[in-house]
Amino acid sequence: MPAPRGFAYEQRGADVVITHHGRPVTTLRGARAERFLAEVRAGDEQLVMARWTGNYKRGNERAARAHPRNRRT
């Protein structure tokens, strides 16, 4: 799976706004914002932001599950 790209975040006071290719995706407030900032500082920023926004899955999971090779008999 390719590495996530295009994410950015901006801290606005106590809030954190995460954007993807310049468009706002989510706003984190309070304790969630603090946890996010700690995680971003400790790891891969792009991967952390993709995971926090739910944009790390590409939608093909259901199709892959139905493939004959993945069916359980």
Rank of each mutant, 00 (worst) to 15 (best):
M1P: 12
M1A: 14
M1S: 15
P2H: 08
P2L: 10
P2E: 11
A3V: 11
P4Y: 01
R5M: 14
R5H: 14
R5G: 01
R5L: 14
G6D: 13
F7W: 00
F7I: 00
F7V: 00
A8D: 14
A8W: 09
A8E: 15
Y9C: 11
Y9E: 09
E10L: 05
E10R: 09
Q11K: 14
R12N: 03
R12A: 04
G13I: 09
G13K: 11
A14F: 02
A14P: 02
D15E: 12
V16R: 01
V17F: 07
V17L: 13
I18M: 07
T19D: 14
T19E: 15
H20P: 03
H20A: 08
H20R: 13
H21M: 08
H21N: 12
H21G: 05
H21A: 09
G22Q: 02
P24T: 08
T26Q: 12
T26D: 07
T27S: 09
T27V: 15
L28S: 08
L28P: 02
L28N: 05
R29E: 14
R29G: 09
G30C: 11
G30N: 12
G30K: 11
A31P: 03
A31W: 05
A31K: 09
A31S: 10
R32C: 07
A33M: 04
R35K: 07
R35Q: 08
R35Y: 02
R35T: 02
R35D: 04
F36I: 01
F36L: 15
F36R: 00
L37G: 02
L37C: 09
A38F: 06
E39K: 15
E39M: 13
V40F: 05
R41A: 14
R41I: 02
R41S: 12
A42V: 07
A42C: 08
A42H: 10
A42M: 10
G43F: 06
G43Q: 12
D44W: 00
E45C: 03
Q46F: 13
Q46M: 14
L47A: 15
L47I: 10
L47D: 11
V48F: 04
V48Q: 08
M49S: 11
R51W: 00
R51I: 00
W52E: 06
W52G: 00
T53E: 13
T53S: 15
T53P: 12
T53V: 11
G54R: 06
G54P: 04
N55K: 08
Y56H: 15
Y56F: 12
K57F: 11
R58S: 15
R58M: 15
G59K: 13
N60Q: 06
N60T: 04
N60D: 13
N60M: 06
N60C: 05
E61D: 04
E61N: 01
R62K: 03
R62G: 01
A64Q: 12
A64S: 06
A64C: 06
A64T: 04
A64W: 05
A64L: 14
R65F: 09
R65Q: 12
R65A: 14
A66K: 07
A66Q: 05
H67D: 10
P68G: 07
P68W: 02
R69W: 08
R69D: 11
R69L: 13
N70A: 07
N70M: 06
R71I: 04
R71F: 00
R72Q: 05
R72M: 03
T73C: 04
T73I: 04
T73L: 07
T73R: 11
T73Y: 05
